[in-house]
Design a protein around this nucleic acid. Structure first.
Length: 331
DNA sequence: AACGCCTCCAACCGCGTTTGA
DNA sequence: CTCAAACGCGGTTGGAGGCGT
């Protein structure tokens, strides 16, 4: 089957967007919603393909995007979720509602991945590249646990993605009736705001709280879910992680996350894992600057690497499995 | 000033999945 | 059920800007 023509059509513009184009797209979506991306460019008077418009909107023009530097909690969340989910940027982005998957992906590739590499940690597996010294520190068991958990999470993610899609659909219908009846009553002047970020209907107060917090609580409890198992997102408006909770059989994961939040985020955010990985300049210093590393092992490089890697892994393991004795058998 | 190298990120590309006729 | 169109995702690219020489 052939690919869809998309931008192949002659006369369609590519490359950076001009302010005029942004304005056209913004004005059109504000007025009509995006509807079909395919037909949008023509209606909006843009000489772009729908794909390009969608990308511009979702990655740049959307009014609910938080721009600028990632804070510590966001970095921490990305690293932890990446350890669990891998390069599933859109899934990771659902837990950082004001960040786009593209932004997270870029930030990972340009910053976070490099940090891990400098620590001697494989950014793909989140394991130390040289297992041997760390194995002697008793980490191999934890690595196995993490690997198992990652597999489990991977399967769980499929369900999450399905739910998200279904939820999107439900709320799209809700939105389409709403947008025609009451325009321009939201703050920011975008009636579709909540639809585009969190798919659930929220009160203004709830939405305001979300706007001010790094991450948000996303609840699926309102959904007409055909699956009898109740599934919902849990999290705190004070930031940190929001992961899906399946009370029937996976309660320990959410309690694990909750425990992680209270121990890692609530107090001592500069200590341990956070201080280690997310300490910004201090971190960069301890793992030597971009250009000055190389032969300078004199400042105790290797020992610190192993110790730091151990702390890093411990932190992730604490996140996914803080108290193995209390955890139910997984398989 | 000129040049080369590097970093960053917006945008593109190609593919898998979903939708709907 | 089939198949083309549309959508959404993840990988990759290219150009702008920063920095050092």
């Amino acid at each position: 089957m052939g690919r869809s023509p998309c931008c192949d059509k002659l006369g369609l513009k590519k490359g950076p967007w001009t302010p005029e184009e942004d304005q056209k797209l913004l004005a059109y979506i504000e007025e009509h919603g995006h509807g079909s991306w395919r037909s949008l460019p023509e209606k909006a008077g843009l000489h772009r393909c729908g794909k390009s418009c969608r990308l511009r909107w979702t990655n740049y023009l959307r009014p609910d995007i938080k721009r600028g530097k990632f804070n510590l909690q966001e970095e921490q969340t990305i690293i932890q979720l990446h350890a669990l989910l891998g390069n599933r940027w859109s899934a990771i982005a659902t837990h950082l509602p004001k960040r786009t998957d593209n932004e997270i992906k870029n930030y990972w590739n340009t910053h976070l991945k490099k940090r891990l590499v400098k620590m001697g940690i494989d950014p793909v597996t989140h394991k130390p590249k040289n297992e041997t010294p760390l194995s002697s520190l008793g980490l191999s068991k934890n690595a196995a646990i993490l690997s198992h958990t990652a597999q489990w999470e991977s399967a769980r993610l499929e369900a999450e993605a399905r739910l998200a899609r279904e939820s999107k659909l439900l709320h799209l219908q809700h939105y389409q009736t709403k947008v025609s009846s009451h325009h321009h009553h939201h703050h920011h002047g975008f009636t579709h705001k909540s639809l585009l970020t969190n798919w659930t209907t929220k009160t203004n107060e709830e939405q305001q709280q979300l706007d001010e917090s790094p991450t948000s609580t996303v609840s699926f409890s309102e959904m007409k879910e055909p699956n009898p198992t109740k599934i919902e997102f849990v999290g705190s408006s004070t930031g940190g992680l929001s992961l899906m909770k399946e009370p029937e059989n996976n309660d320990w994961i959410s309690s694990t996350i909750h425990e992680f939040e209270t121990t890692q985020m609530g107090e001592g955010i500069d200590e341990g894992f956070t201080g280690l990985l997310l300490g910004g300049e201090s971190m960069d210093r301890s793992f030597s600057g971009e250009k000055n590393e190389t032969a300078g092992e004199s400042s105790g490089g290797d020992c610190n690497y192993y110790e730091d890697s151990k702390n890093y892994l411990d932190s992730i393991f604490n996140f996914v499995d803080p108290s193995p004795s209390d955890s139910p058998p997984m398989f």
